[in-house]
Lab assay of single mutants.
Amino acid sequence: MGFKLLSKLLVYLTASIMAIASPLAFSVDSSGEYPTVSEIPVGEVRLYQIADGVWSHIATQSFDGAVYPSNGLIVRDGDELLLIDTAWGAKNTAALLAEIEKQIGLPVTRAVSTHFHDDRVGGVDVLRAAGVATYASPSTRRLAEVEGNEIPTHSLEGLSSSGDAVRFGPVELFYPGAAHSTDNLIVYVPSASVLYGGCAIYELSRTSAGNVADADLAEWPTSIERIQQHYPEAQFVIPGHGLPGGLDLLKHTTNVVKAHTNRSVVE
């Protein structure tokens, strides 16, 4: 069995187990497998329904001669939608809004960016022009300005110390501490036991640490421990890039980060 097929099978099995364990909360999309990078042309966006009122959005972007996937989250909030992270750029984010209108038909009224990198804030200006209120932590807003990236308009308070959590509509926002970046936030959907790890969490097929220019490698494993301790009931975990899975993604990420750190020390 090929690795790609095995990865998709694991996603399907995880979703099936969740649907059985929580039949009222989960209505997993039966329309197909989780979209992969090879299936999404740059400039297009796919939506994948995880649970009743919960979707991931998947886009792709060219970077350094390669094409990478990027995940975000959409959560229903009454007759409105909360968006977590842009679709990595203005063109993708405009396509995301169009796809949401086509498939869901509810307005996106608020959006949260989970850290300051372009795959999370690139497209904020498109959201703002569409009347979406954009939010991020003060740290993310400051770092985005320093980096020359787009800056969300509103500040999220109460997320300055490791372990801080605040309720934001249908989700809980959690600051686990520094990891992929010093400002990275985690998003949890309690009604569906869905954990969105953003770039602080890796997919299972990833074996290298990737972009760690703004990471705190020493603190990252401790931050992941905080996530595990705060959300032990999480059933569906979405990484910032690639295929979702279960809580095993947290341990896998820790292993990859520690291996990278150990290699760096040896070198």
Rank of each mutant, 00 (worst) to 15 (best):
W55N: 02
V132C: 07
E145N: 13
V257Y: 12
S38N: 06
P41H: 04
G72H: 01
G240Y: 02
M1L: 14
F63E: 14
E39V: 07
P41E: 11
N149L: 08
I201M: 14
H57Q: 09
K251L: 03
I74D: 01
D183F: 00
L156T: 12
S205W: 07
P239A: 06
D64F: 03
W88Y: 14
S264L: 13
P69K: 03
S56N: 11
L173T: 12
S16Y: 15
P190W: 03
Q228R: 12
E157L: 03
V37Q: 13
W55C: 02
A51L: 13
R76S: 03
I201T: 12
G72C: 02
N184Q: 07
A111M: 07
E33P: 03
R141N: 15
S155Q: 05
N184I: 01
A19C: 08
G78T: 13
N184E: 01
S205R: 08
V189H: 14
E157T: 08
F26V: 11
H180P: 00
T60E: 03
F63D: 07
A192E: 04
H117Y: 00
G163L: 06
R141K: 15
T254F: 14
A209N: 02
D248Q: 13
G65C: 04
S160P: 13
L143V: 11
I151V: 14
V257F: 07
F26I: 03
E145H: 14
Y48F: 10
P239R: 02
E157P: 10
R128S: 12
G242S: 02
Y12C: 06
E157W: 13
A259N: 14
E150I: 15
Q229P: 06
V266I: 00
E233I: 07
V54N: 12
K251I: 04
L173N: 00
T207D: 14
E157R: 07
N262C: 07
A15I: 06
G2M: 15
A165Y: 09
V265N: 03
Y135Q: 02
P239L: 02
G72W: 00
V28L: 05
A209R: 07
E267V: 13
P244I: 06
A215L: 10
G2H: 14
G89E: 12
V257K: 02
F168I: 15
S161T: 04
W220A: 10
G246C: 11
A259V: 06
S22K: 10
L243R: 07
